[in-house]
């Protein structure tokens, strides 16, 4: 067995890995924000009165959910510059290309989650809000949206964790995130196990932080008057890790 703990700990504190992890977090956040915004639009389009919009939304989900993320990434990074020379310029960075591909991919999944969230809100809620005299926009923002958010937190958190790991695909287009930087280090010192394990630790730590945040948000949406009682979302979330 050739495993050297000193090299493993070196890898854990390697500045290139730390820098890569920062890039991974940044890419995750950017892709998630644009993916969720676009996803909400697509979800509303799928339930719109216009046949054209509904058809467009359906095709969107069919395409971007069907094409593997890595293929999409390569189409955006290598394919677009071939069609449009403007994409060969300096501004079209690997980070930019990865953000686009991952957002488009995320929007397809998020739209389905938002749609099921909208369907999950009882029709009586909308009726009661209208009967009270709330204007249409307030019916959505004060009554429907808070309930959609509550039911979509768990699946969207799942997407967020998936996204964090999906960013590693950007290593294929030489985006300098965690995996790409780890591979560069391995190419220099040939210590695969120590370095890839260190990368795995980085991913695990980031995912764990996300789970804690999710549990905290879920607690805020429990809608009971005594929050301190009962098993919290945190315990439930961490249970599979023990």
């Amino acid at each position: 067995m050739d495993f050297r703990f000193d090299i493993f700990f070196q890898a854990l504190t390697n500045p290139a890995l730390q820098q890569g992890a920062k890039e991974t977090v940044l890419l995750t956040i950017v892709a998630m924000i644009f993916g969720l915004a676009l996803g909400l639009f697509v979800a509303l389009m799928r339930d719109s009165a216009s046949r054209l919009l509904r058809g467009f939304a359906w095709i969107y989900v069919w395409f971007f959910r069907g094409v593997p993320t890595l293929v999409l990434l390569l189409i955006v990074w290598s394919g677009l510059p071939q069609l449009f020379p403007a994409f060969s310029d300096k501004w079209f960075s690997q980070f930019f290309a990865a953000s686009i591909a991952l957002s488009l991919n995320e929007a397809a999944y998020a739209s389905e989650i938002f749609r099921s969230g909208l369907l999950a809100v009882d029709e009586g809620q909308r009726v009661a809000a209208r009967a009270l005299g709330l204007a249409p926009r307030k019916v959505f923002s004060r009554v429907i949206l808070p309930q959609v958010v509550r039911v979509t937190i768990p699946p969207l958190s799942n997407d967020l964790i998936t996204m964090l790991k999906l960013t590693s695909l950007a290593a294929f287009i030489s985006e300098r995130e965690l995996l790409a930087n780890t591979r560069t280090a391995v190419a220099l010192n040939f210590r695969s196990m120590e370095y890839y394990l260190a990368a795995a630790v980085y991913y695990l730590v980031m995912v764990s932080i996300l789970m804690i945040v999710q549990a905290w948000i879920e607690r805020r949406f429990r809608w009971t008057s005594h929050r301190e009682k009962g098993r919290g979302g945190l315990i439930r979330q961490l249970a599979p890790m023990r």
């Binding site: 009726v127 009661a128 309930q147 809608w223």
Partner: peptide, 10 residues
């Protein structure tokens, strides 16, 4: 006032 109350759960 509705049969099923329709209070806002949040």
């Amino acid at each position: 006032v509705f049969q099923r109350f329709n209070l806002f759960p949040h």
